[in-house]
Every structure is written in structure tokens, then in C-alpha cells.
Computed example of a mutant assay.
Amino acid sequence: MRLIIEENDEAGAYVYKTVDRRTGEVISQIPREEVLKMKERPDYDVGDLVSTTA
């Protein structure tokens, strides 16, 4: 396994990827691709990922 840290300028965040050295396949990514895409939406607001109401 190999850890790759990339800066995502569009989302304003760092992306941490665990990659298989032999195949180049991304095993895991934090934050996930779906979260990065969500942050790019014009209607995104901080806290959209977590509901704090009971």
C-alpha cells in the first residue's frame, strides 16, 4: 500500500488516498469523491453533511 496526499484546489481540501502499489487502484480516499463533489455545488453550506437536529 502507498499513501498519497493531494491538495484539491477546487474543494479547498487535502485528499488522502491509499493506493495499491502493484495495480495503482485507489483502495480508499478521505474525503470521498462524493463529498468533494458536494462541496463544489453552489448551494453547499457548512454542515450539510451532518444533521444536528434530533
Rank of each mutant, 00 (worst) to 15 (best):
A54I: 09
L3Q: 15
T18E: 06
D9M: 10
Y14L: 15
Y44A: 06
A54N: 12
I30Q: 14
R2Y: 00
E34V: 09
I4K: 05
S51W: 08
I4N: 06
M1P: 08
V50A: 02
G47V: 00
L3E: 14
A11V: 07
R41A: 06
A13D: 03
R21C: 09
L49T: 02
L3H: 14
Y16P: 00
G24Y: 11
E25K: 03
A54M: 12
R41Q: 13
I27Q: 08
E6V: 05
Q29F: 04
L49V: 02
T18Y: 02
V15F: 00
G24Q: 11
G24S: 14
S28D: 12
K39F: 08
V19P: 03
E10C: 04
L49F: 05
D45R: 14
A13R: 04
L49K: 02
T23E: 06
Y16S: 01
P31D: 04
L36D: 04
M1H: 10
M1N: 09
S51D: 15
K37D: 08
V46Q: 10
D20I: 04
E10W: 03
K37L: 09
Y44P: 05
V35K: 07
S28G: 11
K39M: 13
S28Y: 09
P31H: 05
G24D: 14
E7S: 09
Y14T: 13
V35N: 04
G47P: 00
T52K: 11
G12Q: 02
K17V: 02
A54C: 14
K17Y: 03
E33G: 13
N8M: 03
V15S: 01
S51E: 13
D45Y: 15
D20G: 07
